[in-house]
Amino acid sequence: MSRYDAMAYDLRDDVLRIIEAGGGGHIGGDMSVMEILVSLYFCQMNVSPEKPDDPDRDRFIMSKGHSVEALYAVLAKKGFLSIDEVVSKFSRFGSEYIGHPNNHLPGIEMNSGSLGHGLPVSVGMALAGKMDGRAYRVYTVLGDGELAEGSNWEAAMAAHQYGLDNLCAVVDRNRLQISGNTEEVMGEDDLHERFRSFGWNVIDVSDGNNIDRLNAAFEAAKAVTGKPSVLIANTVKGKGSAVMENKASWHHHMPTAEEFAAIRADFAARKEALSC
């Protein structure tokens, strides 16, 4: 078990602070994506708040922009932002800490919010890297419900056409979206075959809330040349607390005071269990 699994629980607590202070947020997806972000920012990506404009930095786009509270928590831990400032300003009048990524803030490359943009923009970034002979990698995290947006598949075609092995997408496969189960809203099994048929290297991450498995998958992706990679990270929406796990209604549910207390207790117990 990686020490970063414990960090993910600390950051989940930060997400609760952000949502509690701001009066709302997309809590379910924040929790499912947390280990993916921790793995990327603390184990995989070459990014640093000291060199935010380094032309060789790895690029990241949060395509599922509604999980911005998780991104804020991770960017703060990494040193790009101050968590206290995020908490005090999130969703407040005149604030730059809005409910989707805002590239006026340090560490955020592109604005998102509307779905189906991250992968196409990532293709452009990866192409630029190839044109300039730079070794950086481009990462983007997509929601599974987001894959119904057709623009993703335009980008999937182009990424294969241009052999963008410096591009790695991650699907936060939590199997729930705002209206319910992804397979009932707009089914996408077998997602692996869909990406394979578009010419992608597909890596299944059986537990997408496990840092070691995510790291192993990212490393495997780096070893593949000539085509883009996608990690299908099987995650749990609302991960960390039985109060909200696998419940579609928690897509953007605002917890009550009692629910906040129960979730915090669950997080503490799960973190404790990690060290056993």
């Binding site: 032309p55 690029r59 490359e109 592109m110 189906g116 943009h117 196409p120 923009v121 990532s122 293709v123 452009g124 970034m125 990866a126 192409l127 630029a128 890297g129 044109m131 300039d132 057709g150 623009s151 335009e154 980008a155 075609m157 182009a158 056409q161």
Partner: peptide, 27 residues
């Protein structure tokens, strides 16, 4: 080397251009 064909995919055309621009290109 300075040309990109996106196929009949105008949404992708604009997003790819934006990604290129973000990395210093003048698309």
């Amino acid at each position: 080397e300075q040309s990109v064909e996106t196929g009949i995919a105008e949404q992708n055309l604009v997003s790819i251009a934006a990604g290129l621009a973000k990395c210093g290109k003048k698309p």
